[in-house]
Amino acid sequence: MSLHPGTGTAPVAADATAPVRDWLIAATAIVVSLIALYAVFMDNGNVIAATGEYLHEFSHDGRHLFGAPCH
């Protein structure tokens, strides 16, 4: 029951742009999350070249436990 929707949204002028900006931030967060998950679950030492096998071996136990393919 939001009886007073106005109380939390004082800057009325921002209404038009704030949602778009917020959704853009959310989209950025999604992309960053996907990159992080890729690094943790998918890297085999040959994709993110600079890390060699280190990233893979550091997240090794997590990969197995979460069921990500590993070797």
């Binding site: 999350s33 996907l34 992080a36 998950l37 943790v40 679950f41 071996e57 550091f58 997240s59 090794h60 136990d61 997590g62 990969r63 436990l65 979460f66």
Partner: peptide
Amino acid sequence: GLVVTSVVVGLA
């Protein structure tokens, strides 16, 4: 590494 990986996965 397991704990760090779990936190990264949790945040994502």
